[in-house]
Amino acid sequence: MTTAPAHPQIGIPGTPWGDAERAEWLSRQIRQRSYQADVLSAIESLRPRFDLEEYGRLDYGPDSYPLIAIRSRDWREELPVVLVTGGVHGYETSGVHGALQFVDQHAAEYAGRVNLLVAPCVSPWAYERIHRWNPDAVDPNRSFRDDSPAAESAALMRLVAPLRDSVLMHIDLHETTDTDETEFRPALAARDGKTFEPGSIPDGFYLVGDSENPQPEFQQALIRAVEQITHIAPADDNRKILGSPVVARGVIEYPLKHLGLCASMTSAPYKTTTEVFPDSPSVTPEQCNTAQAAAVCAAIDFVLARQ
């Protein structure tokens, strides 16, 4: 069942937004939580155990956001590199806090076995406003390409560029929420001057693999780990999730590089995007964070077992 769009109409239906419409949209965005209190303070608490690196700074109007990555302290060139990203869509809360939970509770288990690079909150402006886009109404997770229109994506690509061909595994932590259907997809249609086509939200956790390099055993290892914590999204009556064919239990595939998705930014042979469903009445925020952390652990365990 779908619901009517929750956002007010901006612009003329069927006409893509211009500068005036984007400015109107921006004027309606309200800070609802604190990047400093929620994220930077948690990252700072990790300083005694990990190296922290400011890899960029976003200056949006009166607001300035340092972008912080977390690195293994025992970084060694001969070790494989594992990349963990979260908060590319700022409103997807467990992507951020699941990444931080992984570092705090599990990263030490991999010391001396992998080089860890974690960017837990790629889009802090959107994190504070619980939104999918940046202030320019650009989706960072469609912007991982040359001459990126999103400063968030460009900063992360610069950080990762020296390691691009040495990353063994990249896991990008996301959520699919009910507001995707009630707010963000209608807004996307309005922004682009298209007709909103109602859909449905998958009830449970699923993964998005790379259609150009599927790695089915890798994806299923993560599904098995996460199903101990939260339920796996079933296919719909057409054997699809969000309009994409289900290739294995809880797994769909996208052409990651073609779409400019975060998980496409390296040459990693193993890559995936997690999708937690936080709006289920049977899960808690803590379970969502734990599911994300478990997925990261399962991903690293899988690739290490094959080294």
Rank of each mutant, 00 (worst) to 15 (best):
A42H: 08
I43P: 15
E44H: 14
E44A: 15
S45H: 12
S45A: 15
L46S: 05
L46G: 04
L46V: 00
L46F: 10
L46R: 13
L46C: 07
R47C: 06
R47F: 07
P48H: 08
R49C: 05
R49M: 05
R49T: 14
F50V: 01
D51H: 15
D51M: 12
L52D: 10
L52K: 05
E54V: 12
E54M: 11
E54R: 14
Y55G: 02
Y55W: 11
Y55D: 07
Y55I: 06
G56K: 11
G56R: 08
G56H: 07
G56N: 07
R57V: 14
R57H: 05
R57M: 05
R57I: 12
L58G: 02
L58Y: 03
L58A: 08
L58W: 07
D59W: 02
D59S: 06
D59N: 12
Y60K: 01
G61T: 02
G61R: 10
G61L: 04
P62A: 08
P62R: 14
D63M: 02
D63L: 09
D63G: 00
S64K: 11
S64D: 05
S64N: 02
P66E: 07
P66F: 03
P66W: 02
L67M: 07
L67Y: 01
I68L: 08
I68S: 11
I68H: 14
I68D: 13
I68C: 12
I68G: 11
A69L: 01
A69N: 04
A69H: 10
I70L: 08
I70P: 00
R71K: 15
R71C: 07
R71M: 07
R71I: 05
R73C: 00
R73D: 04
R73N: 12
R73L: 10
